[in-house]
Simulated assay, not measured.
Amino acid sequence: MPFYLEIIVSISLLIGSAFLLIGSYGLVRLPDIYMRLHSPTKASTLGITGILVASMIFQSHLKGFLSIQELLITLFLLITAPVAANMIAKTALHHRAKPLERTQNQELIDVIRDREPPRSPHDPS
Rank of each mutant, 00 (worst) to 15 (best):
residue 76 F to R: 07
residue 98 K to A: 08
residue 34 Y to M: 04
residue 21 L to D: 02
residue 65 F to E: 08
residue 52 L to V: 08
residue 78 L to W: 10
residue 12 S to P: 02
residue 78 L to T: 13
residue 98 K to Y: 06
residue 21 L to P: 01
residue 56 M to H: 03
residue 51 I to M: 13
residue 12 S to M: 00
residue 61 H to N: 13
residue 49 T to G: 13
residue 4 Y to G: 07
residue 95 H to Q: 15
residue 103 T to R: 10
residue 73 I to P: 06
residue 4 Y to E: 10
residue 107 E to Y: 11
residue 104 Q to V: 12
residue 99 P to C: 12
residue 79 I to P: 03
residue 2 P to N: 13
residue 88 I to W: 03
residue 27 L to M: 15
residue 49 T to P: 00
residue 61 H to I: 15
residue 5 L to D: 01
residue 69 Q to D: 15
residue 6 E to H: 13
residue 56 M to T: 15
residue 10 S to L: 11
residue 40 P to M: 06
residue 100 L to S: 15
residue 50 G to Y: 00
residue 118 P to T: 12
residue 110 D to P: 00
residue 57 I to T: 12
residue 11 I to A: 13
residue 62 L to V: 11
residue 15 I to L: 15
residue 44 S to T: 12
residue 14 L to D: 01
residue 77 L to G: 14
residue 73 I to H: 12
residue 32 D to F: 11
residue 118 P to N: 03
residue 50 G to E: 02
residue 105 N to E: 05
residue 24 S to Y: 01
residue 47 G to H: 07
residue 85 A to M: 09
residue 42 K to W: 00
residue 111 V to Y: 00
residue 103 T to Q: 07
residue 42 K to T: 03
residue 27 L to R: 09
residue 64 G to L: 01
residue 120 S to E: 10
residue 120 S to P: 07
residue 36 R to M: 01
residue 123 D to R: 07
residue 21 L to G: 04
residue 70 E to C: 09
residue 121 P to M: 00
residue 101 E to P: 11
residue 16 G to Q: 04
residue 65 F to P: 12
residue 45 T to P: 08
residue 67 S to I: 13
residue 16 G to S: 09
residue 75 L to I: 04
residue 34 Y to Q: 02
residue 27 L to Q: 10
residue 31 P to C: 06
residue 24 S to T: 05
residue 66 L to W: 06
residue 91 T to V: 06
residue 100 L to W: 00
residue 27 L to H: 14
residue 117 P to G: 08
residue 4 Y to V: 11
residue 26 G to H: 07
residue 88 I to S: 12
residue 19 F to P: 03
residue 118 P to Q: 08
residue 80 T to S: 13
residue 44 S to Q: 07
residue 74 T to A: 15
